[in-house]
Every structure is written in structure tokens, then in C-alpha cells.
Design a protein around this nucleic acid. Structure first.
Lengths: 84, 84
DNA sequence: TAGATATTTAGACAAATGTCTAAATAATAT
DNA sequence: ATATTATTTAGACATTTGTCTAAATATCTA
């Protein structure tokens, strides 16, 4: 749970999740959507991956990232539990 | 949204929310539940308050904190939106 | 085999964060 | 009034975080 909230605690990473909600994207495509260096985006993707919020698959020289909706359920459960 | 995720990005603060889910508590009672100094807990409560996750009311020399379940809905909405 | 493209790793650095102790503020009780 | 109790504010400090540039790794193409 800690790594998930840590991952969500950044506007850029939340935006990446919103992008991936629409379609899978390569690391480069994701980086192009932001005014941040590719290494920084790569670092953000690593944090999202460690939190299991996204998964990645190598396709030739590209790496395609996609959203992991299953983990999202865990967050929802935790938050809903606050409402009793 | 930023202040909410920031507030949730700490195990101590998440535990405070779980405590307040059960009943309202004074700052001192909350502090007693953790092995952390009172000023630190006071700081955590301030962050939770700024995120509007808790509210506080002065009762004599005590300050009673309670959970704000309405804001919780906003988080749930954002997270559910990730699932399309 | 080179050279170009895609991505990550390494290392540096400033800013933000969580913690502490000491002091300040406010209300209660003797 | 003075002392006690409850809580916050202020300031310091080490750790974590987000960013960058430069270099490394891996794949594709001519």
C-alpha cells in the first residue's frame, strides 16, 4: 500500500496513469507528452511499475507500458473502508 | 487533489485516518497511539486538515479531530476513473 | 559492422519531508 | 496569581524526492 500511495503522490505520475487509461504507450510517447527529460520520465515509470500500477513489455527496441487496473481495486478498497 | 495524495502518502497519517474512522479523538489521544512526538503528530494533523481529510473543533483545552468522509468521495472518483 | 534510435542507469544537486527539542499559546485547576 | 495540562509553532537536521546531464545498453537498419 505504501508504494502505491507513494506512486500516486506526484502530478506527473498521475497524468501518466490517465494517459495509459486511454491506450498503451511506449516510454518515448509518454515522455513526449511531458516537458520533462526522458530519464526523469523513465524514473517515474519505474516507480509506477514498482507499485504495480503499470506493467511493461518489450516490443523490439520499444518498451510498451500499460495500466494495471487490478491494483486499482486495492486502492479503492482501502479508501472505501474509510467511509465505514 | 495534490494535497490529498500528499496527505495519504504517509503510513502514520493513513493510520490516523483509520483511527478517526472509528471515533473522534483529541490531538493528545491520537498522539498516544503512536511512538512519535506530539509536535510531529500535530504536524501530521495539520497536513490532513489542509487536505480537508479531517476537521477539528476546539473543546475547552482540547482539540477534537474527526474524519471528513465527503472528501473521500473525490479520491474514489479519481481512482475509479482510471478503470475507465 | 557502423550508425541511428529507444530506453535505462549512474551520479549530482536543490527542494521537500518527517522527525526532534525547546519555546509559545491557551485553557483549567489550586 | 501560579502551576499544570493540551496543543501548536519555530527552528534544526538527516533523509527522500524529482530533476538534470552524461554514459551505458539494446535493437534496428543501411
Amino acid at each position: 500500500m505504501d508504494s502505491i500511495f507513494k506512486a500516486l503522490n506526484d502530478e506527473t505520475r498521475r497524468s501518466i496513469l490517465e494517459l495509459l487509461r486511454q491506450k498503451d504507450m511506449t516510454a518515448g510517447e509518454i515522455a513526449d507528452a511531458f516537458d520533462i527529460s526522458k530519464p526523469s520520465i523513465s524514473h517515474h515509470l519505474d516507480i509506477l511499475k514498482r507499485a504495480d500500477l503499470v506493467s511493461s513489455e518489450k516490443k523490439g527496441q520499444f518498451i510498451v507500458y500499460s495500466l494495471n487496473t487490478t491494483i486499482v481495486d486495492d486502492i479503492i478498497k482501502w479508501i472505501i473502508s474509510l467511509k465505514k
